[in-house]
């Protein structure tokens, strides 16, 4: 007995939420369906919907049980599930500067050794990929990035760090990520970005949204320092590629 119903399926989760699950893998095609449904719900929200949370392979919908109920919201969503594949509007491509050098990249050599490559190759593979934000979570504005080249697949560190610096660019398993704030963490740190991903003082506090795409642009230490100063002074704008 595997899944009781075929995908997409609704997972009952109490009187104040429901989940639509599209499959059972961390996979771009599934994540695109999550984003597509999220976009459709934003355009046509059912009465009593409070908020939606897109994650890797499923969309969580919170509702107000004093206004509506899960069955009513499920029926509304069921009407929006047709032809989701390929229908998500693509997110912008952000060019994120990263310094892959020295103390800013404490695990780069280990990653090169463990994957049978060189530090130069790791940087080339990582900065050559186009990532998509599958989900924001764990920490405010922490982007889980799909699109890591298979060569760089590694399990998490056996000894998680108690303190990962803000801006750390990391990889683990099939994903990459950026730590928005200082936190504990078990991913491999291969670089650091000086940009500020999360600022609670901004109206829109997270720089990125789920579905946005990221290209990492290698910068040298001197350029990293210059950008860090500009960010501190409030006059650095993260570039977007014209698609």
């Amino acid at each position: 007995m595997a899944s009781p119903v075929p995908y997409p399926r609704f997972l009952p989760c109490g009187d104040a939420a429901l989940i639509v699950e599209f499959g059972n893998a961390v996979d771009k095609a599934l994540n695109d369906k999550v984003l597509a449904l999220d976009q459709r719900l934003a355009a046509a929200p059912p009465d009593g919907m409070v908020e939606t949370v897109p994650t890797f392979r499923s969309l969580m919908v919170h509702l107000d049980p004093l206004v509506t109920d899960p069955a009513t919201v499920e029926a509304h969503i069921a009407g929006l599930l047709g032809d989701l594949a390929g229908s998500a509007a693509p997110g912008p491509i952000w060019r994120v500067p990263v310094c892959y050098e020295g103390d800013l990249a404490p695990d780069l050599e280990d990653v090169a050794r463990a994957t049978g490559t060189s530090a130069t190759e790791v940087v080339a593979l990582h900065s050559g990929a186009l990532f998509q934000i599958y989900m924001l979570g764990f920490l405010p504005g922490f982007p889980y990035l799909g699109g890591l080249p298979d060569t760089l697949y590694l399990p998490r560190r056996t000894n998680p760090r108690t303190r990962v610096p803000a801006g750390s660019v990391a990889i683990a398993q099939s994903l990459s990520a950026i730590y928005p704030v200082v936190s504990p963490g078990g991913w491999h740190l291969i670089g650091n970005t000086p940009i500020r991903l999360f600022d609670s003082g901004r109206d829109d506090p997270a720089l990125f949204a789920s579905g946005d795409r990221i290209r990492f642009v290698p910068v040298e230490a001197a350029e990293f320092a210059r950008i860090a100063d500009a960010v501190a002074g409030g006059d650095f704008v993260v570039e977007k590629e014209t698609v």
Binding site: C13, G14, A17, M60
Partner: peptide, 18 residues
């Protein structure tokens, strides 16, 4: 992607109260 522990799933959503 879910490991060998049967209590692990491929990452999903966590509702309040779950």
């Amino acid at each position: 992607g879910a490991g060998s522990d049967p209590s692990n799933i491929v990452d999903g959503c966590y509702p309040y109260g779950s």
